[in-house]
Every structure is written in structure tokens, then in C-alpha cells.
Amino acid sequence: MAKLTLAGLREIREREAKKIGKREIHGRDVHVIVAMGTSGIQSGAKVILNYIADIVEEKGLDNVIITQTGAFDGVVEPVVQVYSKALGLVSYQGVDKDTAKKIVEETIIGGKILEDKKIEIKDGE
């Protein structure tokens, strides 16, 4: 490692703060929940979870937190839920990569609900 200059130290701080900031779970605006029960994983939820996480990372959406949950009954999996103050809890079923991209771009960034994939699930449980 090279000896640091003032600018070098600040650079490290900025870079590392971003990394470590992902462990800070409070005060995020948007909460994305992916249902990861056995059947969810079977129908590709894992791929969708990774895909969403990668787009969120790529676009640098620091205000988004992604967590996982178990399975839901009577829906077409994979299921992805988005929670924000503005929209409340919105649930989507049968999410494929294409829809996942739309969820990030239109719902998370644009604040618009994708009506064709929307279903009603009352609670996160």
C-alpha cells in the first residue's frame, strides 16, 4: 500500500463509506422484498433477486434496501413487493427479468405502478 495523501485518505473514505453504507438499514426510502420460499426459488426468484440487486447496485440507488421473505399462497411466483411511503406496499406476481427491470425503472425510480402484474397481498407475512 502506498502512503496516503490527504486526498487519498478522503478517496478511501468515500469509496468504503459506500460499501459499508449498505449495511446501514435505517432510513431507506424504498424497501424491495423478494419472496424466496422453496417454490419461489424453483420458479426463478433467486435469479430475479440477484438481477434486481445488480441493477440497483449498477444504478447506485442507495435509498433502496432489498430483503427476502418466505412464500405466499395462491399467487404466481416469483413475487416481488415494493414498499415506499408514496406508494405504500405494492405486490407483483409472475416477475421475470423484463418485469424486474421495469420494477426498478418504473416503480422504484419513476414511482409508477405496473398494473398488469399487480396483485393484492395485504401484509408482508
Binding site: L6, L9, I12, R13, E16, A17, I20
Partner: peptide, 14 residues
């Protein structure tokens, strides 16, 4: 050390 720096470490030294 990077994790310490990330949480405002060595800022006081600066």
C-alpha cells in the same frame, strides 16, 4: 482499516 476510515475514521486526524 478501511472500515474504520469509512465511518469517519481518521477524519479527526485530518
Amino acid at each position: 482499516i478501511d472500515e474504520y476510515i469509512a465511518r469517519d475514521g481518521y477524519k479527526a486526524l485530518e
